[in-house]
Amino acid sequence: MIANNTFAFIALVVSEAEGGSAGLLSVNGGLAFWTTLTFILLLILLTKFAWKPILSALKQREDAIKDSLEQAEKAKDEAKQILAQNQNSLAKAEDESKKIIEQSRLFAENLKEQMIKDSKAQAKKLIEDASAEIDRKKNAAFDELKNQIAEISVQAAEKILKENLDAEKNKKLVDKYISDISKN
């Protein structure tokens, strides 16, 4: 039944075509000709003036976007690498400076100790030298004194002998000389 109705409809539409004025399903050759001509012309013109420039522009733009994205990614990676490098070198530099400071501190300490030791030794030596010198000078002075005393006593004895005085006078003289010496 449905099939019959369908065929009836098609038959009706076709019958319109046959019945004088053109029907819905009749193919008009002239229109087909114009469609062919129009479409081919449109295809050629649009391909030349629209599709090619548009598609190439789109492709260019997509490539540019892709490129810049890739470049950005690359730059990011590079920046990361550089940052890591910087941090690395910074840490290294810090280590090094710490080491240098430590070393210099150690050196300074050693130097200080050495200097203190040296100066102490020197001072000790100076003191020793000084005391030795003092001793020497003292001894020399004593020696000279002894010699002078001996000389003076000899001179005094000589004078006594030369004066030829009484014992009391001699005694007085000796006392006088001795007090002179002690005054010296």
């Binding site: 008009n28 050759g29 002239g30 229109l31 000709f33 114009w34 469609t35 129009t38 012309l41 449109l42 013109l45 649009l46 003036f49 629209a50 599709w51 420039p53 548009i54 522009a57 789109l58």
Partner: peptide, 30 residues
């Protein structure tokens, strides 16, 4: 062959011309 300029031919040309103008403008914009 009947090559009459019919209603549909005319509107086909109108559409084609419109399409051509639009697309060349788009192409020029790039």
């Amino acid at each position: 062959v009947d090559l009459s300029i019919t209603r549909h031919v005319l509107f086909m040309w109108l559409g084609s011309i419109l399409l051509f103008i639009v697309m060349t403008r788009v192409a020029k914009a790039y």
